[in-house]
């Protein structure tokens, strides 16, 4: 009985020891994933495309702001038949091509 308890305490100690780092790195990679940023950029691109405003100044602003605030590269190309959104922050890479 004593043996079983001591072995199980030993195993639990190993698990607790490992869980600290695993928990932290997992939660951080979830937090790091720029889902909201990509969604925001997509929404904005679709909105100005459907509103048919001049996209050039807005695209340049989006690219500059994302680089400045999030250190991520954004490249949007908006032609009459194709819309391309490219996002890269060194960890997450997102590339979308929409044929219209």
């Amino acid at each position: 009985m004593g043996l079983i308890i001591s072995v199980s305490i030993f195993l639990l100690a190993i698990i607790v020891n490992q869980s600290m780092l695993v928990g932290q790195t997992t939660s951080e990679s979830v937090l790091d994933f720029p889902k909201a940023e990509i969604q925001d950029i997509r929404n904005e691109v679709f909105r100005y495309r459907s509103a048919e405003v001049d996209p050039d100044p807005i695209q340049a602003d989006i690219e500059t702001l994302t680089l400045y605030r999030k250190s991520a590269l954004v490249d949007i190309s908006n032609t009459s038949e194709r819309l391309t959104i490219h996002y890269n922050n060194g960890v997450t890479y997102y590339h979308e091509v929409i044929q219209i």
Binding site: S71, L73, N89, G90, V91, H95
Partner: peptide, 17 residues
């Protein structure tokens, strides 16, 4: 560190943090 090269477009972009 988070250094990366983006070569998706025609130009190669090097980002150093």
């Amino acid at each position: 560190p988070r250094w990366f090269i983006d070569s998706s477009g025609s130009d190669k972009i090097l980002v150093l943090i």
